[in-house]
Design a protein around this nucleic acid. Structure first.
Lengths: 228, 228
DNA sequence: GCAAAAGTGTTGAATTTACACCCATGG
DNA sequence: CCATGGGTGTAAATTCAACACTTTTGC
């Protein structure tokens, strides 16, 4: 290594996670109640520091597992936050990521660093510690944009789902109402989903068709238009 | 500070810049020829390490100035790259940014760290050192997507410009041909540009109207559709 | 047979595309 | 007066938006 390479002091590098889940027809985010200062007893995003040998996705997965008990979930890098005062303990740069989880399939567990772990519907999120309000807002914005042209929503549903469930998910995330029939046509034309040939049983009304996400999708031919 | 806060060794934090310029009807990128190992005499993106007290945009601006002589240019964060082997000197995580420059308005100068600084048309970029091929590719992709819904292209042109110049810029960046008349209508309807009322003089044909970017733009009402 | 949710199709409106003519300028 | 590039409009095709009836099921 060159001498110059060592002559820099480095800020701490962290990761913060915006974990979205869809539960009871509500989009929620997973928050931790901190057991220690700073922001003791405040709600914050799960996060943690990077060890020298780890890569970012590894850190994310480690934090997921140890702080919330979740494993094997959809993760995407969001943005790096570097405001000098963002962490009162010192200079910390955080590479924020967001994750999409189907909460039915996982049980969340508070790790020993937190008093509590809880899902908050996105419209009832309390004020968060650090700059996590900003990170959360940006993640929500990203999710809203991305769902319009990429089938990211399927991560939030079960393996198979009905058209109505997918429709409600879109309305919930975007916060608008979308014509049921136009939505169906749009989604089916895009070939993002495939009918399984089976129907959901045990409902008191007509049994709806079940679909699954088409993983062998060649390309993005989906663009949902939202009325302004 | 808590004890835990100090117990992490931190990787070096760097910034790499993909500087785009538009010159002679070509989209170009600014590359540095390295004077030192690693990748001595190879072309790379300009980049540098973050000092403990700097924020990311400050680093970008410092590198711009010292390595290329450019100041006061459009900058946007792209992505953080963290492959463990990406820098042979050790563990370096790079927060890549991209920049848009009007090369007419600036003279590029090689800093004392580089043999040479040069604009390369994006379709003739040589193989780059580090993982800079990947960073460059991702930046180009981002620029192509962004120009479809955000008036980012104006940073590459002069303060005032003709419709034809803007049209050619779009065709060049997207690598497609766009109907001149439909493009004009789309752009004018979006109110992204304002006619200055003056015309470009001194041409041998009809004098075209000059426009400027509308900086008091309320919202994004622009969406360029590209035929698939 | 009735209430509740799911499946299906059509029509008018808006947008996009394709395309051609006239105008201003310099030589 | 002519060659070159710049300005403008219209008609057809496509896509989007709005909307209503029929089917299946459990009770």
């Amino acid at each position: 290594m060159s001498k110059a390479f060592h002559s820099y002091k480095n800020p701490s590098l962290a990761v913060d996670l915006v974990v979205f889940g869809y539960h009871d027809r509500k989009l929620s985010v997973l928050l931790l109640n901190r057991k220690e200062e700073p922001f003791k007893n405040s709600w914050t995003l799960p996060g943690g520091f990077l060890q020298i040998e780890e890569c970012l996705l590894q850190v994310c997965n480690r934090i997921m597992k140890t702080k919330t008990g979740l494993e094997n979930i959809y993760l995407e890098q969001l943005y790096s936050f570097d405001e000098p005062g963002r962490d009162p303990r010192g200079r910390v740069i955080s590479v924020a990521h967001y994750a999409l989880v189907n909460p039915q399939r996982f049980e969340v567990v508070a790790g020993n660093m937190a008093n509590d772990v809880q899902w908050f519907p996105v419209d009832t999120v309390p004020q968060l510690g650090f700059d996590h309000d900003q990170i959360f807002g940006q993640a929500l914005q990203r999710l809203k944009s991305k769902i319009l042209y990429y089938p990211v929503g399927f991560e939030l549903l079960d393996e198979t789902f009905t058209m109505t469930e997918l429709h409600e998910l879109y309305e919930c995330i975007l916060g608008i109402s979308i014509d049921r029939r136009n939505f169906r046509r749009k989604i089916l034309d895009s070939e993002y989903i495939i009918a399984t040939g089976t129907k959901r049983e045990g409902l008191k009304n007509r049994h709806p068709d079940l679909y699954r996400f088409n993983k062998q999708l060649k390309q993005n031919n989906f663009q949902l238009h939202i009325p302004s």
